Amino acid sequence: MRSYQQAQDIVRGDLEMTVCADCGFVFNAAFDPGLLNYGDSYDNNQGCSSSFQSHLNALISLLIDKKGVRGKQVVEVGCGQGQFLQRLVQEGGNSGVGFDPSYAGPPSLLDGRMSFESRYYDESCTSVPADVVICRHVIEHVPDPVMLLKSVRAAIGERTSAKVYFETPCVEWILRNGVIWDFFYEHCSLFTAASLSSAFQMGGFRVDEVRHVFGGQYLWIEASPVASDVKLNGGETYALATGYAEHELTLLQDWKQRVLALATDGRVALWGAGAKGVTFANLIDPDCELIDCLVDLNPNKQGKYVAGSGHAIVDPLQLKERGVSDVVLMNPNYRDENREILKQAGMSLNMIE
């Protein structure tokens, strides 16, 4: 947000995280899509991080080199501004069509090899041929994920040789690691490998592979538009979720005490002003009394304020001048990258996980 007051006045919603004992699907039973506003101030770009770029590089290599996505017609559902699709087109000799209601760029790029539709991809898109359909970090934002999958299946039509690839957060990683700041409003639908497979089977797909990527935090699924039996296996997730729920309040109180102790001896910052950092700030320090700021590599966030709590978002090079002595790392995947940034800047800070 552009000002502290705007941040404080943000619309809020409730989380009532619920687990299905049959299939293991985790969802927000209090979700109201009318409260969401993916406007100009919504920025989930992680591409400023070299660590995240390495993850994207691995996905591109997987698709092109191991899955043979070369010379194909690629459709990306929820393409954003098309950066990932553009790499697939350029590096794999593919052509591509990106679908996203929020897309705001030119209608085509790369001499027409890429085009964009500022709308949803659904059964009305059967005329758009697709050898490969990719959808990254969309399904967790959708309150009825099976309906989304059925729409994708209908759009593919009779092209049963097509391949479908989705990426989404892994709720098992959240539950096993007690990451209380990884439940937030935009993510109303969360999956384990088993429940994601069940959803795809319900949507009319055969699941070919599910793998954990990005240090186990994300799931990557490959599926084919061929009907298969639906298998439900939610027992383990139900046990994980109930175990997490029993300890959630204790986890929250422990983190509040840790941050309070750090703030007593010096200034504290959070590293990461994405969803994890925003959620942590609002859970632990909603009144901006303990945490000095959040640091983020995304220049579009620097100089602005965290939605809800109103903490300032700064460049990492500002930590020294702000007198910050301790930094709480929101995501361990960025540990080495962040330490190198501090080292190059000649800063020695205590990094807490």
Results as ranks from 00 to 15, higher is better:
residue 98 G to D: 12
residue 134 I to S: 09
residue 130 A to E: 02
residue 59 L to S: 10
residue 27 F to Y: 15
residue 250 T to V: 09
residue 324 V to R: 10
residue 228 S to C: 08
residue 242 T to K: 15
residue 321 E to S: 15
residue 123 E to V: 13
residue 58 A to V: 00
residue 163 K to H: 05
residue 302 Q to M: 02
residue 104 A to V: 09
residue 8 Q to V: 12
residue 105 G to I: 09
residue 167 E to V: 04
residue 338 N to K: 03
residue 146 V to A: 12
residue 212 H to F: 02
residue 68 G to P: 04
residue 1 M to A: 13
residue 41 S to L: 05
residue 146 V to G: 12
residue 186 E to P: 13
residue 349 L to T: 06
residue 130 A to F: 02
residue 244 Y to E: 09
residue 40 D to Q: 05
residue 257 Q to F: 03
residue 229 D to A: 14
residue 30 A to F: 02
residue 160 T to C: 12
residue 284 I to A: 04
residue 339 R to I: 03
residue 3 S to C: 12
residue 38 Y to S: 07
residue 309 S to A: 14
residue 109 L to H: 07
residue 325 S to N: 05
residue 327 V to H: 07
residue 162 A to S: 15
residue 348 S to E: 13
residue 51 S to P: 01
residue 235 G to N: 09
residue 40 D to E: 12
residue 256 K to E: 06
residue 250 T to F: 08
residue 76 E to N: 05
residue 29 A to V: 01
residue 198 S to E: 09
residue 345 A to Q: 11
residue 256 K to V: 01
residue 142 V to W: 00
residue 299 P to Y: 06
residue 91 E to Q: 14
residue 268 V to S: 09
residue 48 C to D: 13
residue 193 A to P: 03
residue 185 Y to S: 11
residue 238 Y to G: 14
residue 12 R to Q: 04
residue 254 D to S: 09
residue 56 L to S: 01
residue 37 N to L: 03
residue 294 L to W: 04
residue 105 G to Q: 12
residue 132 V to P: 02
residue 128 V to H: 05
residue 352 I to M: 03
residue 263 A to G: 14
residue 263 A to D: 10
residue 75 V to M: 06
residue 279 T to Q: 14
residue 228 S to V: 00
residue 98 G to V: 01
residue 31 F to M: 08
residue 57 N to Y: 00
residue 113 R to W: 09
residue 136 R to C: 06
residue 294 L to A: 04
residue 97 V to K: 03
residue 147 M to N: 11
residue 70 R to V: 13
residue 217 Q to T: 06
residue 333 N to V: 00
residue 33 P to I: 08
residue 50 S to Y: 00
residue 71 G to F: 01
residue 205 F to P: 00
residue 105 G to T: 12
residue 6 Q to K: 11
residue 80 G to M: 13
residue 41 S to R: 03
residue 76 E to C: 07
residue 8 Q to P: 01
residue 214 F to M: 14
residue 190 L to W: 00
residue 232 L to H: 11
residue 181 W to L: 02
residue 179 V to A: 11
residue 271 W to P: 07
residue 33 P to Y: 05
residue 222 E to L: 07
residue 64 I to P: 01
residue 90 Q to R: 12
residue 180 I to L: 13
residue 284 I to W: 07
residue 326 D to H: 05
residue 134 I to V: 15
residue 142 V to Y: 01
residue 189 S to W: 06
residue 97 V to Q: 12
residue 39 G to F: 01
residue 186 E to Q: 15
residue 130 A to G: 03
residue 78 G to R: 11
residue 233 N to E: 13
residue 168 T to C: 12
residue 254 D to L: 07
residue 337 E to R: 06
residue 45 N to T: 05
residue 241 A to Q: 10
residue 17 M to I: 14
residue 97 V to A: 15
residue 169 P to Y: 05
residue 269 A to H: 02
residue 236 E to A: 15
residue 103 Y to A: 03
residue 327 V to Q: 08
residue 38 Y to V: 07
residue 288 C to N: 13
residue 322 R to M: 15
residue 179 V to N: 08
residue 324 V to K: 10
residue 181 W to Y: 11
residue 141 H to C: 15
residue 299 P to T: 02
residue 348 S to F: 02
residue 170 C to K: 03
residue 127 S to G: 06
residue 243 G to I: 08
residue 75 V to Q: 07
residue 110 L to V: 14
residue 349 L to Y: 08
residue 19 V to E: 11
residue 42 Y to Q: 06
residue 116 F to Q: 07
residue 334 Y to M: 06
residue 241 A to D: 04
residue 288 C to P: 06
residue 68 G to V: 08
residue 23 C to R: 05
residue 154 A to H: 04
residue 217 Q to E: 14
residue 270 L to M: 04
residue 269 A to K: 08
